[in-house]
Simulated scan of single mutants.
Amino acid sequence: MKRTTRAVAAVFGAAALALASACSNPNAEAGASSTSSASSTVSADQQLRVGFFGFAKANSFAQAAWAGVQEAAQENNATAEFVDSNFDGAVQVQQLTDAVTSKRFDVVVIQANDGTAITQPVKQALAAGITVVVEFTPIGGRFDTIEPQVDGVISIVDAPTANGQGLAKLGLDACKQLGKQPCQVAYLQGFDNYPLDAARTEAAVAALKAGGADVVATPIGGYTPDSGRTAMQNVLQANPGVNVVIGSSQAIEGASALTEGRTDILYVGNGGSTQAYAGVMDGTWYGTYVIPEKTDGKTATELGLKKHRGEDVPVATNSADLTPFKALGTKETLAGLTAEYSD
C-alpha cells in the first residue's frame, strides 16, 4: 500500500486508495484549472526520457499507472523507466536527488510516498530544467487540494480528504440500502502513521458521523487481503452487529471473504481493480471509489511531455474527473465498464 512513508496502493484503494474528485464528492475542487508554460522547448523528433517514481513495482495500483506511463511514452517519442522505491519515502527522495544530479530524465512522474519529504528534490528537479508531474498523491503539506503546492509542477491528483468524503458518501448510501438507523460502520484505515492515510481517515470518519453513522471501529486494514481479513476478524469479535465496512479494495477483498453469503453486511472499497468491480456487481460490495489509474498515469505522462516540448498544459487536473461517474462506483455507474487493473 511499510514504514511511516509507505503508501497505499490501491488503493486506494483508499486509501487507500486513494482518493480528489470535483463533483459528487462534496468538497472536491474543479479539475484542469489553469495552464502552465513549458519548462523548455524541445522539437517533437527529439526522444525524451521519462522517469516514473512509483510507489512500488510490486503494487498493482502503481503497475496500472506504469502501464499508462509506458503507453504515453511509446506514443510520444519517449522512453520510460520505473524507479522503484518500494514504498519507502526516504529511498524515493534519494532516488530523485540522484536522478537530478545525473540528469537522467527529462520528465519525471511522481507517486509520492511522502509528499512533504520529497518537496525539496522536486524543487531541485525543476531548477535543473526537468519537467515534474505530481500523480495521485499531493506533494506538499496539504491534503485537501488538487492545486500544485510547488510552483512549476503539473498536478494530477486525488485529494485525500475528497477521497475520504467520497468513501463516506458511499458508506452512508450503503446504510440507506440496508435500512439501518443508526448504522454501525467500521472504517479500515490504510496505515495509521502515514500522513495521506491520516488525512483521508479523518475526513471519512467526520463525514460518516455527520451523516448519522455510528463509527464503531477504525482498525488498521492495510493494503492486502490478509491484513484486511485480520482487521475484519477483530471488528466482528468486538462489533458483531456491524453493518458497513469501508477500506482499501485489497483489504475489503480479505474482509468480505469472512462473511461470504451474508446479506446483512455491505462493503465499500477504495480502488478500481477488477476485484472491486466484481464485488460491486455481484452485490457483496455496495460501491468502490475509482480512480482510473492507467488513464491517470497516461494523462500525467502526456501532460509532462507536452509541457517539456513547449506546449501550455493544465497545471491542476482532478483524477476523479477522468471517470464518467466522478469516482463513485456503484452497480449503476459501473455497469458495462471494465476495470483498468487487477489487484
Results as ranks from 00 to 15, higher is better:
31 G>M: 03
273 S>D: 10
111 Q>E: 15
4 T>M: 07
29 E>S: 06
21 S>Y: 07
61 F>R: 02
41 T>N: 07
163 N>M: 05
185 V>Y: 03
267 Y>D: 09
216 V>L: 13
85 S>H: 14
289 Y>R: 00
6 R>F: 08
179 G>Q: 12
221 G>K: 05
155 S>F: 00
135 E>D: 07
13 G>R: 00
329 G>A: 14
173 D>Q: 15
4 T>I: 14
107 V>N: 12
292 P>A: 12
313 V>G: 03
80 A>G: 05
109 V>Y: 02
192 D>M: 10
14 A>E: 07
91 V>Q: 15
178 L>W: 09
144 D>W: 00
310 G>P: 06
152 G>Y: 06
130 I>R: 06
29 E>W: 00
91 V>D: 14
32 A>C: 13
254 G>C: 12
106 D>I: 05
254 G>P: 02
185 V>N: 13
53 F>Q: 08
164 G>E: 07
12 F>P: 03
237 Q>Y: 07
227 S>W: 13
88 D>H: 02
228 G>K: 09
291 I>C: 09
274 T>L: 13
311 E>Y: 04
290 V>L: 12
120 Q>A: 15
286 Y>T: 04
101 T>Q: 15
257 A>E: 08
204 A>N: 04
176 K>T: 14
64 A>E: 06
3 R>N: 13
204 A>I: 03
92 Q>Y: 07
203 A>L: 03
224 T>L: 12
1 M>S: 09
17 L>S: 14
75 E>M: 13
123 K>F: 04
41 T>G: 03
227 S>M: 12
156 I>N: 07
288 T>N: 05
240 P>C: 10
286 Y>V: 05
136 F>W: 01
109 V>R: 05
103 K>S: 15
328 L>S: 03
254 G>I: 11
89 G>V: 09
46 Q>S: 15
59 N>E: 15
323 T>L: 10
284 T>F: 01
258 L>A: 11
122 V>S: 08
11 V>K: 08
8 V>L: 13
250 Q>N: 13
251 A>Y: 02
139 I>G: 10
304 G>H: 06
77 N>K: 05
142 R>M: 04
160 P>S: 06
39 S>I: 14
59 N>T: 11
132 V>H: 01
118 I>D: 01
37 S>F: 09
273 S>V: 01
179 G>V: 11
150 V>L: 06
249 S>V: 15
312 D>A: 05
82 F>M: 12
229 R>S: 15
208 L>R: 02
34 S>F: 08
154 I>A: 04
30 A>R: 09
44 A>V: 06
279 G>I: 01
341 Y>G: 11
91 V>M: 02
250 Q>Y: 03
119 T>I: 08
255 A>P: 00
